[in-house]
């Protein structure tokens, strides 16, 4: 009878290679599925519920709508810029990858702050940065 194979072979453990997983690939799928829910909800709310100025302003001072909009903002910025990153990386050499990441993180954080500033305007009646 065959012997049971040992899972923890010490020689193999020492030279255990790194198993590489593309987190950006996984998060792209994950945020894509979330976007189906969040963006679908966003479109539904903005087109089938009351869209007069006063009601939209009131709705965005409710914490649920604020929370949904902030989540949508973060997810959509990640999904969009991560997609752009994978497009750009295909046309770049490897030594430039770090610069793509730095630039795109900068753009992403700037966009999220900008979006938060717009949502801030509904709570405090004026945006923080934009004049």
């Amino acid at each position: 009878m065959a012997t049971e194979s040992k899972q923890e072979n010490p020689k193999q453990e020492a030279a255990r290679p790194v198993i590489l997983v593309s987190w950006s690939w996984m998060l792209q799928r994950f945020t894509g599925i979330l976007l189906l829910v969040f963006l679908g909800g966003h479109l539904w709310v903005e087109h089938f519920m009351n869209t007069t100025t006063r009601v939209v302003s009131l709705r965005l001072t409710h914490w649920i709508y604020t929370f949904l909009d902030i989540s949508l903002l973060i997810i959509v910025v990640y999904h969009g810029l991560n997609g752009l990153r994978s497009i750009v990386r295909e046309r770049m050499i490897r030594s430039h990858f770090i610069w793509i990441d730095i630039v795109l993180w900068g753009i992403g954080i700037f966009t999220i702050i900008w979006g938060l500033d717009i949502l801030w305007a509904f709570w405090y009646h004026h945006p923080f940065f934009v004049v």
Partner: peptide
């Protein structure tokens, strides 16, 4: 975002 900023600014 640009349109929202524009109509929300004073």
């Amino acid at each position: 975002l640009v349109l929202l900023s524009a109509i929300l600014s004073p």
